[in-house]
Each structure stands twice: as structure tokens, then as C-alpha cells.
Simulated assay, not measured.
Amino acid sequence: MTKITILCEDIDQERFIRQYLICRGLSSRDITCFPKTPGMKVENNNALILKYYPKILKSYRSRKNSQDIAVIIMIDADDKTVDERIRSLNMAVNKEEGDRNKDMRLPNEKIAIFVPARNIETWFSYINGNQDCNEQDDYKNKTLNTTERITLAEASARKLASDICPQGLDENAPYSLHHACNELQRLQLDK
């Protein structure tokens, strides 16, 4: 079974990815966070994702031939586009190549990059019925406590995996969610 390492910004993203992967048949024990965080703490930000990405890429490449492993990177677009955020990741690995817009991942590498635009809450909004959501507005509900945020993330992942993905995304789904679905193919989970 593939072992997956997740590098993401916060607990909402981590729980969303983890629950989605579990719905796809992976075991929770085969999913780890980078860097390893105790309990319910995942407190990265865009700068830390950019800092850790080259390290996780190097680690993946040193182990991929001897282990069935994959990596998922999730970073909010915030005020950038999906392509701009991916370019910043590539530049973190190699400034010159990233400047030329070269993808630093090789075609056969099981490394998926998810860039929710504006943030993960846009995906939650769409998944939970807001067909008119856009990727410029901030749908973050600042009144939710940590437990409610985790519940929303996990419920959204289950709904995406069981209700939406089997039929395919609607054309009006956020571009960043379409992009993430394409990125999932890199993980080769169906093999």
C-alpha cells in the first residue's frame, strides 16, 4: 500500500486530505504529516510550505525507488493564481528553472500539488452546495472552533469522495478543484 506524506498549511487542509484518502481506501496509518506534528497541530503558512517543499522533494527522491511512497502538497492560493503559487514552489526548488516556469517534478513522480483558491474554504463552500462560489471571495467562517473546522473538513472530504468524484466535477466547479482532480492522477492510487 502506498504511504503518503502530506505537507499542508493547517489542520483543515490536513484533515480534508486525510479523510479523502481514507475514503479512497488508504489506511490512516499510511498517511503522515510533514513535519511531524503532535496531536491536532498543523500550523504552517505559505512561507513554511515553500521552505519545506525542497526538503520533502529531496526526501521523496531518496526513497522512491525502495518504497511505494507519494507526497501531497497543499498551499492556499490566497491572492495568487494556481499557476503563480505552483511557480513559487518550483522557484523554491530551483530559482532559475522556476523562473522559466519549469515543473520541478518529474512526470513519473507521485507528487501532487493542490492549490485551493482563494483557500480551502472555497472548496468546502462548493462541495456543500454553493454552486455560485468564486475563487476571489474568502469563505472562511471565523466563528468555527477547531473541532467544528475539523468536522467541516472531514465531512466535505467524504462528500467529495462519495458523491461528487464518482460522477465527475461539474463544469462550474472551481478551477482549483478541477486542477486538484487532475493532480490526483499523479498519485496512481487506482493501481
Rank of each mutant, 00 (worst) to 15 (best):
D79L: 01
K95E: 10
L169Y: 10
Q167N: 14
M40I: 01
E96D: 14
L177H: 12
Q19T: 15
N90M: 03
N45L: 06
I75N: 02
T32D: 11
I73H: 03
N172Y: 08
L152M: 12
I86A: 12
R29H: 09
R87W: 00
M91H: 05
H179F: 09
N94R: 05
I56Q: 13
N45C: 14
K55Q: 15
D68V: 12
Q136N: 06
R61T: 10
I75D: 00
G39Y: 02
S62T: 10
Q185Y: 12
A92F: 05
R24D: 06
K51Y: 10
T146Q: 11
R61P: 08
S62A: 07
D138K: 03
C181M: 15
D138A: 00
M40T: 02
A70Q: 07
P107I: 10
L177N: 12
S27W: 04
V93H: 09
M74Y: 02
T5C: 10
N101H: 09
L89S: 05
K55A: 10
R18H: 05
A180T: 11
E121S: 08
A92N: 09
I72N: 12
T37P: 00
W123H: 04
V71G: 09
S28I: 07
S28V: 14
R63V: 06
L187T: 13
D12H: 06
A70D: 06
Y52W: 12
L57Q: 04
M40W: 01
I4H: 09
D103R: 14
N134A: 04
D138W: 00
N134F: 00
D76T: 02
C23E: 15
P54I: 09
S66L: 10
N119L: 02
Q167G: 09
I150L: 02
D103V: 14
F124Q: 01
K142L: 14
R105F: 15
C165I: 15
S66C: 13
A117N: 11
K58Q: 14
V71P: 13
A155V: 00
E9R: 04
S66A: 15
L169W: 10
T146H: 08
C133L: 02
D103Q: 09
I22L: 12
K41F: 03
R158Q: 13
I49F: 05
D79C: 02
G39M: 01
Q167M: 13
K64Y: 04
I4G: 06
E171W: 06
P54M: 09
R149H: 02
A157P: 01
